[in-house]
């Protein structure tokens, strides 16, 4: 498998990482090497094997429906890039 440049650009956009075409071209070679290594997975037939998403067969604990968190927005917003009136500011969201 060899990733075309357009595919590298598409993934980068999906991942919200700015790349120039030159950067994409450079990273393309590395990605192709990585995917060639990953392709070794195809050596084994996994038909009928149950995928393993979690290490152990544990069940989920559920929390009682109780409010336990206090307002800490002042502390949280002290490390925010841009806030005003308690709101996080971002470039205009267009819907």
């Amino acid at each position: 498998m060899s990733l075309p440049l357009s595919e590298v650009m598409r993934i980068a956009a999906l991942a919200r990482i700015a790349v120039s075409e030159a950067e994409a071209e450079a990273v393309r070679g590395q990605l192709n090497g990585i995917f060639a290594m990953i392709a070794r997975m195809n050596a084994v037939d996994t038909t009928g094997v149950e995928p393993m998403a979690h290490v152990r067969d544990v069940t989920l604990r559920l929390r009682e429906d109780i409010v336990t968190e206090a307002d800490r927005h002042a502390a949280f917003q002290a490390i925010a890039p841009q806030v005003e009136d308690g709101l996080y500011l971002v470039p205009k969201v267009i819907e």
Binding site: V67, T68, E69, F76
Partner: peptide, 26 residues
């Protein structure tokens, strides 16, 4: 519910901005 789906922050409507957004919610 009184609290959120995955955190213990309150769900009440109309609170001042981000006062009911806990560490998980942000």
């Amino acid at each position: 519910t009184r609290s959120k789906m995955f955190s213990g922050a309150a769900t009440a409507f109309g609170a001042a901005p981000n006062t009911q957004a806990c560490a998980f919610d942000i």
